[in-house]
Simulated scan of single mutants.
Amino acid sequence: MSGLLWVAWRGQRAQAAAIAALLLLYGVAATVERLEPDLTGLTFQLAGFLAGAICLIWGAPLIAREFEAGTYKLAWTQSLSRGRWLAAVLAVAAAGALTATAALAAVLTWSLPDTGGNPMAWPYYESHGPVPYGRSLFALALGVALGAVTRHTRIAMPLSVLLVGAGQLAGRALRGRFDLPFWTMQWTETAAYLALTLALTGIAYLAIRHRA
């Protein structure tokens, strides 16, 4: 399995580099705003960008490009089950997504303005606790599932971004309707994200299993 993970990592280095570059640019912008308070506002408004970037850059092309290029045929004819192949590529992608989320959370913890002691204030809420990690896994799984079902990156990429954005807006709207403590809301929302992640992973598996 370790050899398979290495192959999966080699195939995803470009996505990892792209996400790392975005995080670096965001970190530079956050540093500039920290040093120049008059510029504060841009990184605050863009704090939720990572989920969209993960589904667009990493999730949607992960399976769809294999179908478009026909490279999946080689992987599936090497005495390798489709389930193991999917598990390997998803494990590498999930590790990368979680690492990126942790890096962004560290930047936001350092750079976000004072919320006045309100832990439910956005984007403090969405950059602390388990929610950002659950959301990143959901975004990844959504992109992968759409790519596996549509088999076209040009369809899966924009559609996944739209759905992730809609999901974030819906989450904020629903959050405002329930007067729950910070950690209760965090774990409830994270559980919902993880349930959706499992469901979408199952959809992706069924899509590649029935691929001729």
Rank of each mutant, 00 (worst) to 15 (best):
Y124Q: 14
A51I: 07
L198R: 10
A17M: 11
I54R: 01
G27R: 11
Q12C: 05
F49Y: 13
T31M: 15
V149K: 13
Q168K: 08
G143V: 00
G11Y: 11
L42D: 10
T99Y: 08
A100P: 00
T109W: 14
G48A: 10
H128I: 01
W6S: 14
L162V: 15
W9H: 15
L169K: 10
L39S: 06
E68C: 11
A212K: 10
A195E: 05
C55L: 06
E68K: 04
V107C: 10
A21I: 09
A91I: 11
Q12F: 02
H210L: 02
A93R: 01
T188G: 09
W6N: 09
I19V: 13
L112N: 07
R211K: 10
I57D: 00
Q15F: 12
V107Y: 05
W76K: 06
S136E: 02
Y124P: 00
S111G: 03
V144H: 07
G167V: 04
A191N: 07
D114V: 02
A148P: 08
L80F: 09
L74D: 08
A69D: 14
I208E: 01
A139Q: 05
A20N: 08
W183S: 12
G165C: 05
A199G: 11
L198M: 13
M120E: 10
A17H: 04
A93K: 05
R154S: 11
L39T: 04
T150V: 08
A47F: 03
V161E: 09
F49A: 01
A106E: 06
A87P: 04
L39A: 13
V161W: 13
V131W: 12
W110M: 10
T40N: 05
S2A: 10
A212N: 09
T197I: 03
I54G: 00
W122T: 14
F138T: 03
L159W: 03
A87N: 12
Q12G: 04
A199K: 05
E66D: 13
L146G: 01
L159F: 04
L198F: 12
V28D: 02
L159C: 04
L112G: 03
A139E: 00
L159N: 04
P61M: 03
Y72G: 08
L137V: 07
L50R: 01
R65C: 02
E126T: 09
V92F: 00
R172I: 07
